[in-house]
Structure formats: structure tokens, C-alpha cells
Design a protein around this nucleic acid. Sequence first.
DNA 1: CGTGTTTTTGATCCGCGTCAATTTGGGTGG
DNA 2: CCACCCAAATTGACGCGGATCAAAAACACG
Lengths: 252, 252
Amino acid sequence: MLNRLPTAKGNIFCACGAFGCQCAELCRFGDSQGLGASVRSLARGDRIYPSDQPCMRFHVVRTGLVATCAMTLDGRRQILCLNVAGDVICAMSAKGAECWCEALAPSEICELDLTSQAARLRGEPGFLRALFDLAHDRLERSAAHLIALGRLDGMERLCGFLAEMTRRTGRRIGQRWLVCLPMSREDIADYLGLNSDTVSRLMTRIKQAGLVRFLSVSEFEVASLERLEDRVPNSLARHLSDCEQPDEELML
Amino acid sequence: MLNRLPTAKGNIFCACGAFGCQCAELCRFGDSQGLGASVRSLARGDRIYPSDQPCMRFHVVRTGLVATCAMTLDGRRQILCLNVAGDVICAMSAKGAECWCEALAPSEICELDLTSQAARLRGEPGFLRALFDLAHDRLERSAAHLIALGRLDGMERLCGFLAEMTRRTGRRIGQRWLVCLPMSREDIADYLGLNSDTVSRLMTRIKQAGLVRFLSVSEFEVASLERLEDRVPNSLARHLSDCEQPDEELML
DNA sequence: CGTGTTTTTGATCCGCGTCAATTTGGGTGG
DNA sequence: CCACCCAAATTGACGCGGATCAAAAACACG
């Protein structure tokens, strides 16, 4: 990728602290008193609505799980994007559309409001590259998500989802993975374009197949991540899994 | 939106000429001999594969219709994005994934290769803003597409698609719209996450309902675009329709 | 005018949605 | 610590939308 920045470590301007994440680069642009950055706690269900100076307010997830959501006019919800610890959410334009951010689990976020710096930052290449990086990231995830919703069946989508959560938030213990899954079946369904009953049914089959083992309803263990991912014929999702090697391209 | 640039008219560096489009701004960054810009003709089915210097090669659609495609490992195709005359395609990173651009109809594209300028452009705010705009645009479309695939049924998706094509490529004639639809049922199906038989069946029902009238298999007329759009409960799609008013936000 | 391709249409099947009945589990108060 | 309660999850029965397969019709092109 063109503009992938080296993930600098946290810095004094940013209340998000020590993440080696997308956040760090953006936080460099906060002012020197650390103004514009503040920490907020969200309970499950709490929402953040966009304000009117787009692309200048960022929300960095410190802990928990925050979803970017949209709704059809008759109230069906679709989760567009999941944000885990370290992810940066940027409020972008979507005039009039029913669109918001929602904590799926108790979460802590760091709010970074660079509105006051807007004029300066529009001419700042480093900031613009970080912003582009953010959008680029979302586009890649979005493409993988589109394939899942358009061309994979329920079982494939759910296996892909579990594998994704494992890669993004799981703790590796030897050959196994331990993953916390702090969202309801309903939330999972709204991410995968299914309904919660179907998710529940599929989950049962996945357990029976021995692909995952649930310790509680919100924590599971993966014996072989490879075996799980073999169920997911999504080339773009695989791409997201191993983000170390140099990138090839995708048509924007 | 933060960085929406005024759509400057075409300029001498760009073979794409007189589009009042996203293209124009990018073309400013071509070198003064107009190098890096060349016109190519594509037949239906012709493909463009990404090369290895991402985000520095652009393809501007002059005429025709070009799809951004991806494929599952077992060969199911999903169209991620449709690009009509005036749209700019940027090859971005998607390591290893089966991912390409494909002309759905005979098309002319203008290739703009800024690879040689990469070092300079990484520090150029205007270029970076244009790049971000491009990504932002795609993200908005992508979000509307995700809602369609995740939460709308076949009829709603197809009506939404026809309305989208009408808005993007249709010619207005008084109260009516005349729209050229130069893609196969298969292509439409791959865009909407359906199969071609289903698209055909739904199309029949849409004709019977009097929402559109087909002059040939690839050209149709819309008597009342409003009536068509009333079938589509997709708030994000509506947002894309009326791009004149100032934007609100969407969570990136 | 004939031939291959795309589209349409019909018959049938299956995955997923819907609705309802249980079960599970976490939280609270006695 | 146990009994109770409520919300979430599971499971079953059933129906529908869309996939599949096959045949017929429409169309494109030489």
C-alpha cells in the first residue's frame, strides 16, 4: 500500500496511550495541550451520532467492541463494520441517512476532536495520509464483507466471522486460541445479514463439528484456526488475516 | 464532507478531457507532457489486473461500464462496485486476493499512471485530498451496497439498482428518464448477490408493475423515478441520490 | 436464414426467516 | 445460599424466497 505508515507508538497528545495502532499517527495532530482528546465510557447499547464537521472527529476504541450501524427506512439494522480495541472510527459524511455508532459491549473510547485544527490539517500531508489509510482499511474490510453477504451462505459467513474475531481479538495459547465474543446473537446476525435464530442454529452445528468450543455464551476456544478458515472460501477475508506481507492491489 | 473538491473541468494533462469529474483533480498531477496518461479501449469481458505500485495508477472511465470484481475461492463472482463514465478507479492493495476490473460493456478508459511521481505526490496535500475523496466516495457506495446485500430482498435490491443506474447514467426527458443498461442479467445478478434466473423473474414483475418499460433488453424507460425509489427502503442509497446538499456524516 | 448465446419461464428443492415453545443463565431479593 | 425473574439463547415446525435445473423463446451475428 502506498501510504501505510509505520505504526508509531502512543504519544503524549493522545489519551489513548500505548496502542501501536492507527490512532497514534492521528494523535500526533492533536494540539500540544492534549486538547480535543477525552476518554468516554460506553455501556452496551450507547450510541454516538455524527456531528456536522465530518472527518475531523475520531473515536479510538480502547476496550470493548463498537459497531458502525445503518438502518433501512423500515427499521432493519445492518452492521457495516466492527471496531475492536485499537481501531479508529472516523465520522464521515452520510447526509440524512440513519447511521450511527453503537457499543455492543461495555467499551472505553477515546474521543479525538481535531475540528479546531481543520484548516491547518487540510494542508498537512501526514494527516491526510493517515486519513486515507483509515479509509483504505475500511474499504478492504468492506470488500470482504460484501463478498460474504453477496456470495457466501450462512455457515460460511459465520465461520468467517468467528475466524475474523479470532484473528483480531483472540489470545493465542500454544496452538489454540481463546476468544472473547462480547456481542449478542442478534448483533452477530445484523453483521452477517442473517437473523438471530439462524445464527443460533448454525452455531450449534459449528460446535458439533468441533470447530469451536464455547466456554460460555460469550467466550470460545478454537483448536485449529486453519480448519475453521478452510470453511471460508473468501479470498479477501484471507487477505485481511495475514497483514504482514507486502500488499498487492485491489480496485478501489 | 471535508475534502470534497470543486469539480474542476478537464485540463491539458488529462486525456480524459472534459469530464467535470473526480478525474480532473487527479489529472492535475500528471506531468506536463501528459505522460502517464493514455486511452485504452476495452471489449466486453476485458480485464485490468492490478500491478504492484498501488494507489498510483488510475483508470478513468470515459464511456461504457466497468466493474470492480472479486471472486470466492470456488469461483463465485461478486461485483463490488460499478463504474460509469466519469468515475475514477484506483488500484489499491488486496494482496493475493482474486480481484480485478472488468468491462461489462465496450468501454473506453483513460489510464493515468502517476507511479513516476509517487515520491513527490506523497507530500502533496491536493493529491492526497483527491485520493481520500475517491476512497470516501467508494466507502459511501460500499455502505449502501452492504445494506442492500444484507437486509433487502431481491425485489428491493433490483429496484434500487435500476434507480441507481437511472440517477447515475440516465438522460432525463421531461418527467421521464431514458436509461442505457449495457450489462447482462448475469452481471446484474453478481452485483446484487442473486442469480440471473431470479433477476430475470424479478425484472418481469417490475415491468408488469409498470415501474420500468424496456425498449430493448439493454435500454429502459422510467416514467416515475419516485415511484421506483419508493420500493427501496435504503436510506444510504437515497443519500447517494441527492449529492447536491451539504453532507452530514457516516461512521467510517 | 441458420446457429450459438442470452433471456425467459416453469418445476422443484433447500436454506433461511418467522413464530412459538423451552431452556439457559445472569442478576436480585428474601 | 436458594428461589425467583427476566432476557437471551436454543430448538422445533412450518412457509417462503431464491437457487437449481431444464426447456423454450428471444435475440445477435455471421
